[in-house]
Write a protein that binds this DNA or RNA. Structure first.
Length: 441
DNA sequence: GTTGAGCGTT
């Protein structure tokens, strides 16, 4: 923006951003070459942030920074100037003074992360041959594993389940966000019942209305990734003029609701996906309540998004998976719990299919974007989803049964994508995932 | 020796 003569001398212009007006906590954040700052860049430093403001030296009032298309625009043609910019967080993000406090912000964040995030996770349906070592090795692909407990009876024989704990919330979320095939068995990883708290459910998924037919899932992902890590995108096919984008961080999702965005030259409306959670006693959600017309966002999505009741299982299923995502996010320093949401998701037997491999149109490799935020650098999956099963080479994939990702062997014998299902998860019984673990024994 | 929904001190 504008003509800053020395603008290109440095690689990036940095502006000071703080969580509050105490600039001792400030972080210098790089702008883009056009003078804007990507919201995603900001979020990388201040997870959950949804904007910027600064105190105007004359008026003494705080002024908001313009945000459009994921870019924060400098307050004037003169650029960002020397102001201290202050992060704006969603109101619901109860980032109060006691949370921001005097002490080192980073340290604080760490502490918060620890407190809010990591929970033991129960692993159900482990292969009999599982050992502490093997299970640890398997889950280390999601991050550091700090605890493994396999449950055994008095005789010492393995009971088929156990608990693990990750070092970081991000790792935990990664593990919760997908299903796990270990030695040909679908292993359920969930927040233990004992850890469920009463938690506000925070949808990670947004409804994107007024999509045009040329908008692919990739397009939506590419676009929305600037706001935060996108864990899933769903675009119904045949074309239905809407889509869903799921973020790892529910705050990001929330912050986008109500906004219009321009993608591929068309204005789309982002609104709350607002899925209704059905109790687990009633697994038949797909028969009611879902589909655009039942979404808060459906209305604004208006033309073209009217749900035709007949084909709503796609949306429905995806919703169950992702609408209420294992809430989570980047090393979180927002006040959100994980338990219920993730638990709800997992307990429906869905474990989330974010990592849906193979021909799923949901999986596009690890979250893109710069920093590799939240994803370990060491054991990524590359562009093709989870590691191919191999008898020997892949940690955690030892053993020998069928049902590996590459073969597309989903529990119900239904594959994702490729069949007009729009890449949806297998339909059918929502409890179907767990009941088809046959390979073993 | 077997098994396959569940919820943790051993």
């Amino acid at each position: 923006m504008s003509n800053k003569s020395n603008y290109n001398e440095d690689l990036f212009e940095y502006i000071k951003v703080s969580e509050d007006e105490d600039d001792s906590n400030a972080v210098e954040i790089p702008c883009e070459h056009d003078g804007t700052m990507l919201l995603s860049t900001l979020v990388a430093q201040f997870p959950g942030a949804c904007g910027l403001k600064y105190r105007h030296p004359d008026s003494k009032a705080t002024r908001g920074i313009r945000l459009s298309d994921g870019k924060l625009h400098p307050p004037s043609d003169a650029g960002w100037g020397k102001h201290l910019y202050i992060c704006v967080f969603p109101k619901e993000n109860k980032r109060k003074m006691e949370d921001v406090s005097p002490e080192n912000s980073a340290a604080k964040t760490k502490r918060l992360e620890k407190k809010l995030t990591c929970s033991d996770l129960i692993c159900l349906g482990l292969p009999w041959k599982t050992t502490e070592e093997s299970i640890k090795q398997y889950f280390e692909q999601f991050g550091e594993v700090v605890m493994v407990q396999l449950k055994r009876d008095k005789n010492g024989s393995f009971k088929g389940f156990g608990f693990i704990r990750f070092a970081t919330y991000a790792s935990q979320m990664r593990a919760l966000a997908q299903r796990h095939n270990i030695d040909g068995r679908w292993v359920d990883v969930r927040i233990p019942n004992s850890k469920e708290g009463v938690v506000p459910q925070m949808p990670c998924k947004v409804f994107v209305g007024r999509c045009t037919e040329d908008m692919t899932a990739d397009d939506l992902r590419d676009y929305f990734s600037r706001f935060g890590e996108v864990t899933d995108v769903f675009v119904p096919r045949p074309f239905r003029a809407f889509g869903f984008v799921t973020f790892l961080d529910p705050e990001v999702a929330q912050s986008l609701c109500g906004e219009d965005h321009v993608i591929k030259g068309a204005s789309v409306s982002v609104s709350s996906a607002a899925p209704k959670i059905k109790s687990k006693s009633n697994p038949n959600w797909k028969d009611d309540s879902y589909g655009p017309s039942n979404w808060e966002g459906g209305r604004s999505g208006s033309s073209g998004s009217g749900g035709n009741g007949s084909n709503n299982n796609i949306d429905t299923l995806n919703m169950q998976n992702l609408g209420i995502n294992p809430n989570g996010g980047p090393p979180a320093n927002f006040n959100l719990p994980i338990s219920l949401v993730a638990a709800a998701l997992n307990q429906a037997g869905w474990g989330g299919f974010l990592g849906g491999p193979g021909n799923s149109n949901n999986w596009q490799g690890p979250p893109q974007g710069n920093s590799g935020k939240g994803w370990n650098n060491n054991q990524n999956w590359g562009q093709n989803g989870p590691p191919a099963w191999s008898q020997s080479s892949n940690p955690g994939w030892s053993g020998s049964k069928s049902g590996n990702w590459n073969q597309g062997n989903w529990p119900n014998g239904q594959n994702w994508g490729g069949n007009g299902g729009g890449g949806s998860a297998p339909s059918g019984s929502s409890s179907g995932w767990n009941n088809n673990n046959k390979p073993q024994t």
